[in-house]
């Protein structure tokens, strides 16, 4: 089963995603694809906190901050994957070093890579972030990123059997349903 989860910051997305991935794995291979590339001490602390939260859940952690297709071979076919987050992966792909200039082809590439990853996995849970409802007129770069993330989100939501929005630790199912 493919599940897509989005919502605002600190609304319970990662917790729901972990519980769903664990349940969907039914004791089989369970992978956590970590997409965040630490840039400072704050990021490192956040990553340590996430690792501690996953302890004892049985996840094998694979670092995959970019080029998601290269990760596909590291997953055994039929395994269960938790990808957290689409947001960080797209940001790494869209603004690559050394100059961090915007790559407008990144959203399509990331969407295709993520869909291929989903085909390889038996079950997959994608986690993204809902960043679309603020009253701000952004520059072309930020607006391009929002548009790009929405493109990836919509492609994933279309391909998934279940789509959830997390709000205050509660879940709104926009499509299908998955039980942890």
């Amino acid at each position: 089963m493919k599940v897509f989860i989005s919502g605002g910051c600190k609304n319970g997305k990662s917790t729901l995603a972990q519980r769903l991935a664990k349940a969907l794995a039914e004791g089989g291979e369970l992978y956590y694809l970590a997409t965040m590339e630490p840039r400072d001490a704050e990021d490192e602390a956040r990553i340590r906190r996430h690792i501690a939260e996953r302890e004892g859940w049985g996840f094998q952690t694979l670092e995959c901050p970019r080029d998601i297709e290269s990760c596909i071979g590291k997953i055994s076919a039929g395994g269960t994957v938790l990808l957290d987050s689409v947001t960080a992966l797209l940001s790494n792909e869209m603004f690559p070093p050394p100059d961090y200039a915007m790559d407008p082809a990144a959203p399509r590439r990331v969407a295709e890579g993520l869909l291929k990853l989903g085909e390889r996995a038996g079950s997959i849970v994608y986690v993204s972030d809902y960043i679309y409802s603020d009253a701000e007129i952004y520059d072309a770069v930020t607006d391009g990123y929002k548009r790009g993330l929405a493109y990836v989100d919509r492609a994933l939501a279309q391909a998934c059997q279940a789509v959830a929005e997390c709000c205050a630790g509660l879940v709104i199912w926009h499509k299908g349903r998955a039980e942890p």
Partner: peptide
């Protein structure tokens, strides 16, 4: 209509008024 209601309260007064009027 776009929902613009869920970000940080804008610093700019016009943007604040816009968010509320919308």
């Amino acid at each position: 209509c776009e929902d613009i209601s869920s970000g940080v309260v804008p610093v700019d007064a016009v943007m604040r008024a816009w968010r509320e009027a919308n």
